[in-house]
Amino acid sequence: MKNANLIAMSFLSVALAAGMSGCKHRPPNTIPIPDSGRPGSNSAQTPGPGANDANPNPGGITSESIPLDNTAYADILNGPHNADAEKFKADTIYFDFDSSTIKASEESKLQEVANYFKGNTKHEALIMEGNCDERGTEKYNLSLGERRALAAREYLANLGVDPQRLKTITYGAAHPVDTARDESAWKKNRRDDFVLITPK
């Protein structure tokens, strides 16, 4: 049975092949090439206006994580504001390779940030920017950077800062402070920067 099928199939394909090639006077079968409608072949350059149409309520989270509030970073930045990256320049915290654990050496910096930010409610938000060194894949580094930003956020929340004022963003490995390719550069790049947002 199987063999019969096999032979039938083979015969058919050979017959087709013979039909196309065996008789020299017959024109070869012509396959038209579609030249339009390929993905991306007709793309325009101008991006359209963005629309914020997806922002429902935060879901009921059951983990120990501290949920973020309902305001996206972009929404804050769309309003009139000052973004101050200098205020906590000296308080940038650093991480070990492939780690998002807050090191003991960095805790005093976070304490300093918390003390100031808790007492100055005119500042709308504090952005924690998570960064990685260049090693690792880009997707991996984006998640690691977010984890680093979230680690600082949780630490600050545990020091009594209102978590709703604490925002996170990851840049993965895209914002190195030192582009050299050695450990002395990499250790400067594995960091959280703090940016203070104040409404105008």
Partner: peptide, 9 residues
């Protein structure tokens, strides 16, 4: 168009 712009990542 914006597909998702939730807080955080």
């Amino acid at each position: 168009r914006v597909f998702a712009n939730y807080p955080g990542a």
